[in-house]
Write a protein that binds this DNA or RNA. Structure first.
Length: 600
RNA sequence: GGAGCUGUGGUGUAGCCUGGUCUAACAUAUCUGCCUGUCACGCAGAAGAUCGCGGGUUCGAAUCCCGUCAGCUCCGCCA
């Protein structure tokens, strides 16, 4: 099949499709764009012409141009066309109030088909329910959809506001290397082989952490960067192998200073990008309080359903599962599911299955009735105990109470997840707005059973609280960090800290996390050395920019606010990356493959 | 590394549990013809699917079983 495609070289676009209004009536315009829809009435053809700014109706009629009408006959969806015509008010009664440009239309005098298009594999419109497979494979078509374009515009605005705001506060944006050094701790690195240094590898940065600290040593004082980071870990709805951070660092500041700048910046981004007014300062929770009340260090404050501790009651009760959990140093906590007392056996089983994925051994429950708490386990409790439990939860008939008895980490993880699930299921998150919170007073270190050593909760450059420094040697697990996380609606948006700026203290922390002096020198010698040359006290923060934009856009995954995201198996369905490379490329890089041949 | 969900014309679904009138249904998109005020245009007609892939059970598999691939959600992992 052949089709005539025409040049637009001698035509200049005068307006964007979506911007025309009644004020442009009688204006001669040249428009270019994609055909959203053609409505052929035989002697009269309507075409909805689309660009990033919107849609406008163009009309082909023998009254305006028979030649153009003939051309319109060949036009199909997603053809790229140019039209020359006159803006006219629509005839009385044919205005379309659903369209921004619905009061006017373009009477076409001349038309050109700039490019034909195959029928797209899915509709170019908002709210499509297409397998994400197909959207990703044809990402260029997916990105034609208005809601995707709005997301990218929102992302741009957020980035621009960030730059404007930080510029106004004396920050400068400094680029740091993408080809850098692999360091221990943290996520798996993406490695890049060095051709000129056989056997040596660069790592793509997990974050510019060390470079920004070095910039503080350099006296940059206020640094920021909107920067790509790479982590070779498994993906989630809010985790991609490459993602973008707003990375900041300041000298001569306290945690309070960093939090103040951050709050103002976030508020400004919300205002500029979405018109949303958020109140500052943001509320604060301590790490322990967050765990106790919400079971997580990134609580969703849009709803209550707080965890309730009944360990004291459980310790003396007749239910062995509860009693022995407390005896073993664990906790018994529960969550009230309002109005869920009618849940069927099957529904409760499903919740139990859910709990099992968080390592809980089971889920105990009471159904609240007019006559008190009912459940198979009720017989193990005295009347007083039942009343105490019911009172503590403020339970009312028709409610369901769910319990986990286990070691604290399991109790927190399970009930935290259960709380999130119930919040969604009971529709408590809908239209509940944007609830920011700081989480502070993190422990500096935690003991990792698998590795048999202490590891940094944030990263090893985080400063301990002054008054806890002495504990580093005696009780490392009790040292609190000068760290702060920013959480929005249950999503960890960012985290930061005041950093260590003294060599001796940094060496001490390395020691506590099990780095030998030699290893510390080999991996972080440049930082330690820099600290010897007059390093100011400094601190900063880094945000998951994709996550922030995701929440502002009201989406459930950062893939929807990234132009070209990867699938859960870290591949790009459009380009087919990652891919095999030629033997020659490998030879140049001094790389030999050692892949087990699998029998097929 | 593990658990769960999904995979049926271009797209979205039904059918699957309980195998056979499934020679696979519906909507929409597509194509052809008609149509001068539509904007979810309308009307008439047509074409389009070996049911993700491989194997097994069976007289017979979209349907049951095993394996595998892909996408998604989650656990682990993510300083």
């Amino acid at each position: 099949m052949t089709y005539a495609v025409e040049s637009a070289n001698d035509l200049r676009r005068t307006h964007m499709c979506g911007v025309l209004t009644e004020a442009d009536t009688d204006r001669e315009v040249v428009l270019m764009g994609w055909v959203q829809k053609r409505r052929d009435h035989g002697g009269l053809i309507f075409v909805d012409l689309r660009d990033r700014w919107g849609v406008v109706q163009v009309v082909f009629s023998p009254e305006y141009s028979q030649e153009a009408l003939n051309k319109a006959d060949r036009i199909r969806s997603e053809y790229v066309i140019a039209v020359v015509g006159r803006v006219q008010k629509r005839p009385e009664g044919t205005e379309n109030p659903n369209l921004a440009t619905g009061a006017i239309e373009i009477h076409v005098a001349q038309a050109r088909i700039l490019n034909a298009a195959k029928t797209p594999p899915f509709y170019i419109e908002d709210g499509v329910e297409v397998d994400e497979n197909i959207r990703l494979r044809y990402r260029y078509l997916d990105l034609r959809r208005p809601e995707m374009q709005r997301a990218l515009e929102l992302r741009h605005k957020a980035a621009k506001t960030t730059r404007d705001f930080l510029d106004g506060r004396g920050f400068i944006e400094v680029e740091t290397p993408m080809l850098t050094k692999s360091t221990p701790e943290g996520a798996r690195d993406y490695l890049v082989p060095s051709r000129v240094n056989p056997g040596s590898f660069y790592a793509l940065p997990q974050s510019p952490q060390l470079f920004k600290q070095i910039l503080m040593v350099s006296g940059i004082d206020r640094y920021f960067q909107i920067v790509r980071c790479f982590r070779d870990e498994d993906l989630r709805a809010d985790r991609q192998p490459e993602f973008t951070q707003i990375d900041m660092e300041m000298s001569f500041v306290s945690a309070e200073d960093v939090m103040e700048v951050t709050e103002s910046m976030i508020a400004e981004i919300c205002r500029q990008a979405t018109g949303l007014e958020v109140k500052v300062p943001f509320p604060r929770l301590t790490y322990q309080e967050a765990l106790d009340r919400f079971g997580t260090d990134k609580p969703d404050l849009r709803f209550g359903l707080e965890l309730v501790d009944i360990s004291d009651v459980a310790a003396g009760c007749g239910f062995k599962v509860f009693r022995s959990a407390v005896q073993a140093g664990g906790l018994v906590k529960g969550i009230l599911a309002p109005g869920c007392g009618g849940y069927s056996r099957k529904e409760i089983d499903e919740l139990t299955q859910f709990a099992l994925t968080y390592k809980a051994k089971g889920l105990a429950y009471f159904i609240v009735t007019e006559d008190g708490l009912k459940a198979p386990i009720a017989k193990f409790f005295s009347e007083d105990e039942l009343v105490a439990i019911r009172t503590r939860f403020g339970a009312r008939p028709g409610d369901l109470i769910l319990f986990v008895a286990d070691q604290p980490t399991v109790v927190y993880a399970t009930l935290g997840a259960l709380r999130r699930l119930l919040g969604e299921r009971l529709d408590l998150t809908k239209d509940a707005g944007y609830r920011f919170t700081w989480v502070v007073d993190f422990p500096l270190l935690e003991f990792n059973d698998e590795e048999g050593r202490f590891v940094a909760v944030h990263h090893p450059f985080t400063a301990p609280r002054e008054e806890d420094i002495l504990l580093l040697a005696s009780e490392p697990g009790r040292v609190r960090a000068q760290a702060y996380d920013l959480v929005l609606n249950g999503v960890e948006l960012g985290g930061g800290s005041i950093r260590i700026h003294r060599r001796d203290l940094q060496e001490k922390v390395f020691e506590v996390i099990g780095l030998t002096p030699d290893e510390a020198l080999e991996k972080f010698g440049f930082l330690l050395e820099a600290f010897d040359y007059g390093t100011p006290p400094h601190g900063g923060i880094a945000f998951g920019f994709d996550r922030l934009v995701m929440l502002l856009a009201g989406r459930g995954t950062i893939r929807d606010v990234m132009a070209f995201p990867k699938t859960q198996s870290a591949s790009d369905l459009m380009t087919d990356a990652p891919d095999k490379v030629s033997r020659r490329q490998l030879r140049e890089l001094h790389i030999g493959l050692d892949i087990q041949k699998v029998d097929k």
